[in-house]
Nucleic acid binder design. Structure first.
Lengths: 237, 237
DNA sequence: CAAGATGAAATTGTATGCAATCCATAATTC
DNA sequence: GAATTATGGATTGCATACAATTTCATCTTG
């Protein structure tokens, strides 16, 4: 986005850093549910896939472990995280805390450019929801998370934004495990409600709306039933 | 060197993991200001100090980089973080958000055992403040942070607790850089005020009190003046 | 003398080798 | 036949080797 670099190098994101690249690839695979909770991530396999040594893969896995997307067990290896119901509740509780504050800040700071971006994003979400098929569904999941990340970005606090990034990613895991319906439809209209409050610069209302939105997401979960496959992984400990 | 730190509960199982051990040692050194902001952390040096290979040191440094205590620059190495005024403001803003919510939860969940622990801790803080000398001062700094971590622990949300751990550690760096007085004395009475609100199970008051407490800490900072040494490090970028 | 060029030493990035550990299956015992 | 114990392959933890990069002192050159 910023090709013109002045003499002062601000942030050299131009990293041919393969560690980051692999982290991003795995992160996306997990968030888009191409990698199921509990799946084992073998260092040599990943390394061959990306054509790097285990050293690099290890660093990537450690990054993901810090973010809570991967669990590393000593001498046993790395697994896609399998959040417990308790963890899940704490994730959503944390989101309510942080995201309602983010909404307040965003209501104060939102610009016309931001609003245009949000509107375009909402249309994209609509389009993906109308489409059928697993790929469209994955894209819809990702877009829904991205909406929340855009909010965090507008609020302008990089630290809270990073916390949110982590929470959104982990939420995706939780929904994959405990989600019941494809309740994204209700979520969609709520995203629009949030934007309305932001446009009206009504911080209080934006915060309330987003809190309710998170409540609704959580209401669609059934913590008693871990949805699909890896029961053996769940019971392993 | 290692008094039993019962105050900080570890979330992970006790692993003979040397990576974690080195991370903890460096973490403490930074938080207690034995390592100044900007200081370079050479992999081989650290490795020789702890008698491990660079592989292990690297993992520790990457952990610390995630927590924002260390900055890793490609091909240049790892440095103790040197938070900018902007970062500092965001750190305290994030603390206000998360910690006031933590206070609310803690007010609901606090037990008599907790209260006793808090009282003992306050006495310890008093004792350290009365003492003189750099070691007592370091211990006082650490104890002050530990008080906030105890709060987070009582609140019972492991995720917010981890966020707080990071924010407290980074606050210590900020105060080392921009702090003016040894204003811990005012902080001490405020810690007692917070406890009073908790004992009264008045969540609202606890939240307000802690917000003011954080305001006061921040008021003692002067973001214009980066206090002591490593100017050359500050200007390096 | 300032500014740049040069090269050696220091330091980091990555691959690889080896020992320790784990896991699955076969063999053994009762 | 069930439970327990060997055994071999797979996988991880860590140290080390080597290449790439940076740093710093020294040496030009104008």
């Amino acid at each position: 986005m910023k090709p013109a670099d002045s003499t002062v190098p601000l942030r050299d994101d131009v990293q041919d850093d393969r560690t980051q690249f692999i982290r991003d690839a795995l992160h996306n695979a997990i968030v888009e549910r191409r990698l199921a909770p509990g799946a084992k991530l073998v260092e040599t396999e990943v390394g061959e896939l990306f054509d790097v040594s285990r050293t690099v893969v290890r660093a990537s896995l450690q990054m993901l472990a810090f973010e809570g997307l991967v669990r590393i067990e000593r001498n046993r290896g790395a697994f896609v995280a399998y959040p417990s119901p308790d963890e899940a509740r704490q994730i959503f509780e944390s989101r309510r805390v942080i995201e309602s504050e983010i909404a307040k800040c965003a209501a104060q700071r939102i610009t016309d450019t931001d609003i245009a971006m949000f509107k375009a994003h909402l249309q994209e979400e609509d389009r993906l929801l109308a489409e059928r098929g697993p790929n469209a569904r994955r894209a819809a999941i990702k877009a829904s998370g991205d909406y929340h990340l855009m909010l965090a970005s507008v609020a302008g606090n990089l630290i809270l934004e990073r916390f949110m990034r982590e929470l959104i990613a982990r939420s995706s895991l939780v929904i994959a495990l405990y989600g019941q319906s494809g309740a994204s439809s209700c979520a969609r209209s709520e995203h629009a409600d949030i934007l309305d409050a932001l446009v009206a610069q009504d911080g209080k209302k934006a915060a309330d709306t987003i809190r309710h939105h998170i409540d609704h997401i959580e209401e669609d979960l059934d913590y008693k039933v871990a949805s699909n496959a890896p029961l053996r992984d769940a019971l392993r400990i």
